[in-house]
Amino acid sequence: MSKYIVNRDAQGIVWFTINRPEKWNAIDYDVMNGLLQTITEVEENKDDRIFVLTGAGKKAFCSGGDLSVFQNLQTVEEAYQMLSKMGMILYKLATLSKPTIALLNGLAIGGGCELATACDYRLASRQSRFGFVQGKQGITTGWGGATLLLERVSIDKAFHLLMTGEVISAEEGKELGFIQHVLSGDDVMKDCEEYISKEFLHTPKVVKAYKKVVIRKWLATGLKERMLKEMEDCSALWVTDEHLEAVRKIMRKE
C-alpha cells in the first residue's frame, strides 16, 4: 500500500493524501520524497491550479515525523540532514506559485502543524485538533514551522501556540487566526471543494500574480535563511538528554 496518494480532478485540484492512518499519518522519508516530487510537478504543470494536503482516515491530518524512523538520528549532523530536507520541502510548499490548502481532517501535532503552516490556507473539520507540541519533547519546531507561523499570525498568538504546546480545537484555532474556515459537514473533501469554488474566483494567471507578491516579500526578508537557522537550533536540541528521553517515552507507549 502506497504511503501517499495523489489524485487530480477536472477542476485542476491536486489532492495529496498522506496514507499512513495506522501511524497517524506520520511523515517518513518516502512521504517526504513523494511530497517533494508532487510539489515540483504542480509548479510545472499548467493544468494544476490548486494543491490540497490532507491525511487518510478521520483520526489524523499528520502527527509529524515518524519517530520509529527518526529516533535513530544520534548526532547533530544526522538530525540536521533530516530536518533541513523536510524544511526545504516546506519552503518549496510555502513558495509554490499556486494556492495551497491544508485540509485538517483530524489531529495535527508537531511537524503536522508545521506542514499545515506552510500552506496558504488551513481548513479544519469540527473534530480536528492541533498543537505545536515540540517543546514538550525538548526540541523546537525543526522544519521551519515557527518562522512560517510568524508569517501567518501575530507574535503574541504565535508565542502562545509555541510556548504552551497546547493542543486546541478547530474553533480555537479560528479565533487565533490560524484556521481560516471550520468545515461544518462530514464530507470534508466536498466542503473543501465548495470553499475553493467561492474563494478562487480569478483566473489562474491572476492568482499566480498575487502569490508572487507574497513570495517577493519572503525573498526580501530572507525566509529561507531564517528557516535554516531554526533547523540548526533544533538540530542542537535533538541530541540533548531531554529530547532523547522524551522520544524513548513516546516509543515505549507505542
Rank of each mutant, 00 (worst) to 15 (best):
E242H: 07
K59V: 00
V182N: 07
T147L: 04
M231H: 06
L90P: 03
E199H: 08
Q134S: 13
L93Q: 02
L123H: 02
K3I: 10
L103E: 07
Q74W: 02
E43R: 13
F178M: 12
K212S: 10
W238G: 03
I39G: 03
D66E: 12
K98Y: 11
T75Y: 01
P99T: 11
R8G: 14
L223P: 05
L183T: 07
A146P: 00
I18W: 05
E232P: 00
V14W: 08
G106S: 08
L90R: 01
L35A: 02
N105R: 10
L219R: 15
Y121N: 00
W15A: 06
L223R: 02
K3S: 15
Y121P: 01
D28M: 02
A79Y: 01
M32A: 06
S68A: 03
L183H: 08
L67F: 12
G55T: 05
P21S: 10
Y4L: 12
E78K: 12
I39D: 04
G173L: 07
F70G: 05
S2M: 13
M1D: 09
E199K: 15
A246H: 05
D186W: 09
K98N: 06
V206E: 15
E199V: 07
Y210M: 10
K205N: 12
F159K: 13
A10V: 14
R216F: 11
V69Y: 10
W238M: 05
G64T: 05
N72D: 13
E22D: 15
G55V: 06
A56G: 02
L148Q: 08
I139W: 06
F70M: 09
I18A: 03
A60L: 00
V206H: 14
V247C: 09
V206F: 13
S184N: 15
M86T: 10
M189G: 00
T240Y: 05
G138K: 04
G165C: 03
K253T: 10
I27V: 15
V153T: 03
P204Y: 08
I50C: 09
T221Y: 08
M251K: 11
Y195W: 15
A116G: 14
T117V: 14
S97T: 11
K85E: 11
V182G: 06
I50L: 09
